[in-house]
C-alpha cells in the first residue's frame, strides 16, 4: 500500500503525450457519428416536418409531440408495450428459474442439459418464428397434441402465443445468470438446512432466492428491457401495420420506414428511450433497496 501511493502520484505527473488520445480517437469518432449525433438529430427532427427522405422542412415546434402524445394509438401502444414487457419479464424469469433450480447441482453429465437449456439464446428470431408458425398453425403440432383446432397466431390467442414463443427464445441467457446465482449457495448451508429438516420450498425461498437476489432482479429487468427493444419476432409473426402487438418499437419502425414519417418515428424513438431509461432507474432503485448482498 505504502509504495502504491507514490507510484500513482509519480504517474500523474508523468507526461503521457498524445498516445492515449490517439488510442481513443476511433472509439470517440464512431460514438459521436453513430450514437451522439443521431441521438441529437433524432431530437431535432421531432420539431420539423420531414420530407420522404428525412430532410427537415418547416419548423413545427411541438406540434408532432402533441399529436403523438394525445393520440389513442400512442396510449394503446404504451399499454401494450408494458403488458408485453411485463409478461415476458415475469414469464422468462419463471421458466429460467425452474430450469436453473433443477440444474443447480453440478453432477456428472450436467453440462449436457445445461447446454440444452441455454441453447435457444444462440438461435435467431427468424428460424424460431418459422418453426413457431408451423407448430401453431391450423394443422400444426400444437393442435394435434392438445386436440384443439385453433389458429393460434391470430385473433385472441395471438398475443399469448407470441409471448410464449419469445419466452422460450429468451430463456437461455436468463438460465445462465440464475444458474450462477443459485450456485453461489454453499453446500454447507444446504447441509445445515437439511439437518434442520428444511423442505425444498423452504430452502428455495429462504436460501436460494435471497442469495441469488442480485441475479433475480437483473434477469427480470433484463428481459423486460429486451422485450421493449426487440422487434424481429413481432414484425415476422404479426407484421407492423395496425398490429395488435404495436409496441413502441413497432410504431417507430412503422412510422419511419413504412410510412416515411420520420419525425413521428423519432418521437416514438425518444419515448422508447425514455421508457427504457425510467425502467433502468427503477431497476437501480429496486436493486439498492431489495437486493441482498452477501
Amino acid at each position: 500500500m505504502s509504495t502504491a501511493v507514490p507510484a500513482m502520484l509519480r504517474k500523474k505527473r508523468k507526461k503521457t503525450g498524445p498516445l492515449p488520445y490517439i488510442l481513443l480517437l476511433p472509439t470517440m469518432f464512431f460514438l459521436i457519428l453513430f450514437t451522439f449525433y443521431p441521438f441529437i438529430n433524432c431530437i431535432r427532427l421531432t420539431f420539423y416536418a420531414t420530407d420522404s427522405i428525412g430532410r427537415p422542412g418547416a419548423f413545427v415546434g411541438l406540434r408532432i409531440w402533441k399529436k403523438v402524445l394525445t393520440s389513442d394509438e400512442f396510449i394503446k401502444s404504451l399499454k401494450v408495450t408494458f403488458r408485453y414487457g411485463g409478461l415476458i419479464g415475469i414469464g422468462t424469469f419463471s421458466l429460467a428459474m425452474i430450469l436453473s433450480f433443477i440444474s443447480t447441482k453440478n453432477l456428472k453429465g450436467s453440462k449436457v442439459y445445461q447446454t440444452m437449456f441455454a441453447l435457444p439464446m444462440a438461435l435467431a428470431t427468424a428460424p424460431i418464428a418459422a418453426i413457431g408458425t408451423y407448430i401453431f398453425s391450423r394443422y400444426g403440432l400444437f393442435n394435434a397434441i392438445f386436440g384443439t383446432t385453433n389458429i393460434w397466431l391470430a385473433g385472441n390467442t395471438l398475443f399469448g402465443t407470441v409471448v410464449g414463443i419469445v419466452i422460450w427464445a429468451n430463456c437461455g441467457s436468463s438460465f445462465i445468470y440464475l444458474l450462477v446465482g443459485f450456485r453461489n449457495v454453499s453446500e454447507e448451508l444446504i447441509e445445515c438446512a437439511d439437518l434442520d429438516g428444511a423442505n425444498i420450498f423452504t430452502k428455495f425461498f429462504k436460501i436460494y432466492l435471497p442469495i441469488a437476489s442480485p441475479q433475480v432482479f437483473f434477469v427480470i429487468f433484463l428481459n423486460i428491457l429486451t422485450a421493449f427493444k426487440s422487434f424481429a419476432m413481432i414484425r415476422i409473426l404479426v407484421g407492423t401495420d395496425d398490429s395488435p402487438l404495436a409496441v413502441l418499437i413497432v410504431k417507430l419502425y412503422n412510422y419511419a420506414f413504412v410510412r416515411q414519417r420520420y419525425e413521428t418515428g423519432c418521437v416514438y424513438a425518444l419515448i422508447l428511450s425514455l421508457v427504457i431509461f425510467l425502467v433502468s432507474r427503477i431497476q437501480f432503485l429496486v436493486e439498492k433497496k431489495v437486493v441482498f448482498y452477501q
Binding site: 433524432c42 427532427l45 427522405i53 418499437i249 423519432c266 428511450s273
Partner: peptide, 25 residues
Amino acid sequence: LFTLVLIAMMIPGQVVTITNFLTIR
C-alpha cells in the same frame, strides 16, 4: 471521455436506428 462512453452505453441502438439509417443513406 469515460463518462461519454458510459452515456453512449445508455442510449439503446434501436433508438438511434432512424437517424443512423438517414446517415447511412
